[in-house]
Design a protein around this nucleic acid. Structure first.
Length: 707
DNA sequence: CTTAGGG
DNA sequence: CCCTAAG
């Protein structure tokens, strides 16, 4: 479940369903909307829709219009308006809560300390954003999201061990951000570690997926200090919205179905209490994504289904997990977490998604690690790597954690890089084997395509490779908070591995639901299966079971595992991005860096000789101006080959045929074929000319004829 | 949505 | 491959 990374919206074209999506994205980008906001908005919409199903369609368009407009809530009139005054706010709050829980035993006064900050922050509102895709698309076949797309690496800087505070700081600092609240120090968990551990222990047992949430808190880079969850805060929250669909977002501490509606206030507040919090919080954390998904799902599913979800989630989560916590925060948080990708979380995602066979187990481990991290995270980083455990997939690149020394050296620890998200679209009728192969291809392509590392500082990409760290400003502590690494795919991939069979569309039963997972990519939408909601439980359970139980045996290939997971995931809740997929990785340290997102281009798939042959044959028959027909005749099954692609290929073939063999690159095309290309091209060109001439001649006037 | 072309 | 203008 956690596998899902964020999804980055991709631009799509022709076959690609998603031009609109692209537009959407652009808008987002243009507006500089932050992914989180977007996510929040989406969540909000979903929720809203849930509440007002009838209006959803109408609204969608409306949303479209308004959508990203606001960095603030412009839609005051909207029934469901949630605003996020501050992205960070949410996080803070979230963290804050977290902290509280953790610290409560210890009697830490985090709350108090943080409180001042908090007042303003508390309002976490989701803006209403449009999620165009949601409305529109629905029929997407089964797309599997293999992995989270972005992997972010976070560089952690460690402080000297000497200074305990320092150690803690990294985490805290990050969280708090440059804003630098001294208060953060209050955060120290060291003392409390033991207590925390207890909590963590539970945590550890939990399935990995859920855990990721925790990471958020830890994520040094992204997170800000939690806002105090003081009563006022709570009040605010509730205040946020009457309209706010908290219910959907949050579930009470109890098992109330997410769907349930607005009774959250109580729950919410309840959560606030330390007692309740602890559990709730954790649960919530774990549930994280699931929760969200559930929520979304819930919209579509009514009543009974909801229960299932809950059940599911609980079962999945170990039973202990209850959907707790109140919603907005959670949702938001979740959203954010993904977007922010606390590295820890990412890690989880990575493991699950990308990792191999033991993926799950592994991820479990990861989670574990998270837990550990948490404990230590606060206290000491060193352990982090432990978490990774032996089998991290190749995908993960671990690095050293860094301690900043006083000397001029800057050390970084990169927990892991994630493999860009992979999307696979495959017919439902495809075999598991083909699915595995597809995944393999996708992964291979992704890895083989080349990745590059990007450095992000203070939310900005550092493009000048010649600058020194010092010049860049990385040498300072404060800097580290803002330092991030990204793995940037050189290409985007959309795998049509199973292209042979076109993807089938989702059955009637399924309804796609769009979710936005990835904040950074504004328009990521996932599709969910309506029926799915019901199914979710099963799927999840199944998936988990499989993972847990079967993990290894079924592990033929790492990829397969991940795929399966993802599959399960997708089924469960997940949404699948509509279109293409993008793979990209992004890391950003500061919250604002989210924007950095890149639309990726489709993966390059050189034409095989067979394809060229088919193309030539089709063109010989149909001519050069009928690419759509050519596509239909010869590449109807190859989803990844659009008529534009065919046209382009023909263009290049003609060019290739005209140049000397020495100048040709790539897989050599039989000269014979090239000859046919030239012949065909010449023939059709002539035909075209003739036709034109004839037209001119016949229709207009003799004048042209003369010419 | 298709074509046609330039990038 | 992508992006766009045009039809």
């Amino acid at each position: 479940m956690d596998l899902i990374g964020y999804q980055v919206p991709t631009k799509r074209r022709a076959n690609r369903p998603a031009r609109r999506g692209a537009t959407f994205h652009r808008r987002v980008e243009d507006k500089q909307i932050c992914p989180f906001d977007l996510l929040a908005a989406v969540a909000g919409n979903l929720l809203q829709e849930k509440e007002n199903p009838s209006s959803s369609s109408d609204r969608s368009s409306e949303k479209d219009q308004n959508a990203f407009v606001n960095e603030e809530c412009q839609n005051a009139n909207k029934p469901f308006k949630v605003e996020l005054s501050d992205e960070e706010t949410c996080d803070r709050r979230f963290q804050h809560e977290f902290v509280k829980e953790e610290c409560q035993d210890a009697n830490k006064s985090v709350k108090a300390e943080l409180s001042d900050k908090g007042s303003s922050d508390r309002n976490c509102c989701l803006k209403e954003l449009p999620h165009p895709e949601i409305d529109g698309n629905s029929n997407i076949a089964s797309i599997v999201t293999i992995s989270g797309c972005l992997e972010r690496l976070v560089a952690e800087t460690l402080v000297d061990e000497k200074n305990h505070n320092e150690l803690e700081k990294p985490t805290c600092n990050v969280d708090f951000g440059s804003s630098g609240c001294p208060k953060i120090s209050g955060f120290k968990l060291d003392d409390d570690v033991s207590n925390v551990k207890d909590g963590l222990n539970k945590f550890e047992k939990v399935p990995c997926g859920t855990r990721s949430e925790k990471c958020c808190l830890e994520d040094p880079l992204d997170e800000k200090p939690p806002a105090p969850i003081t009563s006022s805060g709570i009040a605010k929250l509730s205040g946020c919205d009457d309209s706010m669909p908290r219910s959907s977002l949050s579930k009470g501490c109890d098992n109330v179905p997410v769907v349930s509606s607005r009774d959250d206030d109580e729950n919410f507040s309840g959560c606030a209490h330390p007692d309740a919090k602890t559990k709730p919080f954790r649960q919530m954390i774990r549930i994280g994504d699931q929760r969200i998904r559930k929520t979304l799902a819930s919209k579509y599913c009514k009543g009974a289904q909801e229960k299932k979800h809950d059940t599911l989630s609980s079962s999945v989560l170990d039973g202990n997990l209850k959907p707790v916590y109140s919603g907005m925060k959670n949702c938001y948080k979740l959203i954010r977490s993904e977007s922010n990708i606390p590295f820890k979380k990412r890690k989880l995602f990575n493991c699950s998604s990308v990792s191999n066979s033991d993926g799950f187990i592994r991820s479990g481990g990861t989670c574990y690690s998270h837990a550990n991290v948490k404990n230590r995270g606060v206290s000491s980083f060193p352990r982090m790597h432990k978490v990774a455990g032996p089998g991290m997939s190749s995908l993960e690149a671990r690095q050293h954690s860094a301690l900043r020394s006083k000397d001029s050296h800057v050390k970084f620890r990169i927990k892991s890089f994630r493999v860009p998200e992979l999307f696979i679209e495959i017919p439902e009728t495809a075999t598991i084997g083909s699915l595995k192969r597809s995944v393999m291809e996708a992964v291979t392509a992704a890895l083989g395509g080349g990745l590059r590392v990007g450095v992000i500082l203070q939310g900005k990409k550092v493009r000048d490779d010649s600058k020194t760290l010092l010049q860049t400003g990385i040498s300072h502590d404060n800097q580290r908070d803002a330092l991030g690494f990204t793995l940037e795919p050189n290409y985007s991939q959309s795998l049509p591995p199973v292209c042979a069979a076109d993807s089938l569309h989702i059955r009637s039963a399924d309804k796609p639901q769009p979710l936005i997972r990835h904040p950074s990519s504004p328009a990521v939408i996932h599709q969910r299966i309506q029926g799915c909601s019901c199914m979710l439980p099963e799927h999840q359970a199944t998936s988990l079971g499989n993972l847990v139980a079967g993990g290894h045996d079924s592990i033929p290939s790492p990829i397969s595992t991940s795929v399966e997971k993802s599959l399960a995931d997708s089924r469960a809740l997940v949404t699948v991005p509509e279109m293409g997929m993008e793979a990209r990785t992004l890391l950003r340290t500061n919250r604002k860096s989210k924007r950095s997102e890149i639309a990726q281009r489709r993966i390059r798939r050189p034409f095989s000789v067979d394809e060229v042959e088919a193309l030539v044959q089709a063109v010989e028959k149909l001519g050069t101006g009928r690419w759509r027909d050519v596509k239909l005749h010869a590449f109807d099954h190859a989803k990844h080959r659009t008529y534009v692609d065919l046209k382009d290929k023909w263009k290049t073939l003609v060019h290739t045929a005209r140049i000397s063999p020495q100048q040709r690159r790539g897989e050599p095309v039989p000269q014979q074929l090239l000859d046919r290309v030239l012949t065909t091209h010449a023939y059709w060109s002539q035909q075209q000319t003739k036709a034109t001439a004839a037209q001119a001649t016949n229709l207009p006037s003799p004048l042209i004829k003369g010419t």
